[in-house]
Design a protein around this nucleic acid. Structure first.
Lengths: 126, 126
DNA sequence: GATTAAGTAATTATTTTAGTTACATTAGGA
DNA sequence: TCCTAATGTAACTAAAATAATTACTTAATC
């Protein structure tokens, strides 16, 4: 998103983005789709195509970017289901979900305070 | 930690904990070591050994438990280093670290409000 | 001294994540 | 109209991170 912000109105193809991140264009394109679904960017096909920011960096918060590419749940959960015999195991999932929700809310509130423009400023300062 | 809290002063061996979570005792023991290092539990060897809470559930926050078993960094970072030619890639790591720190602080502040006793209460209510 | 537990190293298995290849689809421009 | 350059997407492979297992050492109790 920072790279797109620097390019301003110019389209940036997934291949260029992939180079700056040292990864594969398809990996980038999968992320671009999520950012697009969240309404943060537009993509254009064909020559001179690529991704462009849909809004000014001042109007984009890290909360939006984060929730676009991440499906919540700060703490992981163990892959196996806990024993249903155990009084804790029986209801821990529900209790943990409420904690996850609180944690996510706190995180989102903090990220909502930071805009892409803030990130650009910090990048310039180094 | 909730299971240990229910056992009160009684030791709980890793094998019992492993059963309630449907996993292997060694996986549990590795976690117990981290909890022990954080000063949250004590472990005892030999017959009738196992883990015991070191403090009352009212005095243990989820912040402590979380930071004992998790080494910060809410968002992952891409395994590859970004291009140093790119003005973003060059300094993004430092900028992201500051954001990580803010996010972690926000998360910790929220988790500090919840005690193990709160979790037990919620578990009882279902 | 037998037994039961933690601590720990080394290994294997599983799952998740990232990367790759290939191709269909879309749009622009000579 | 055809060529080219881009996204979208599926299928597959590779790599990394996690979890599980095995085996053994150390410590404590009875």
């Amino acid at each position: 998103m920072a790279v797109l912000a620097l390019k301003k109105a110019n389209c940036c193809p997934s291949s260029s983005l992939a180079e700056t991140v040292n990864t594969n264009p398809v990996v980038i394109r999968r992320l671009l789709i999520e950012l697009q679904d969240a309404g943060l960017i537009t993509t254009l096909r064909g020559p001179h195509g690529g991704a462009v920011l849909k809004r000014k960096p001042e109007k984009v918060t890290l909360r939006e970017i984060h929730s676009a590419v991440d499906q919540g749940n700060i703490f992981g959960t163990h892959p196996n289901e806990p024993s249903q015999e155990c009084p804790v195991g029986k209801s821990i999932a529900k209790v943990m979900q409420r904690i996850q929700d609180r944690a996510n809310r706190a995180l989102e509130q903090e990220l909502a305070k930071i805009t892409l423009a803030d990130v650009l400023r910090d990048l310039r300062r180094g």
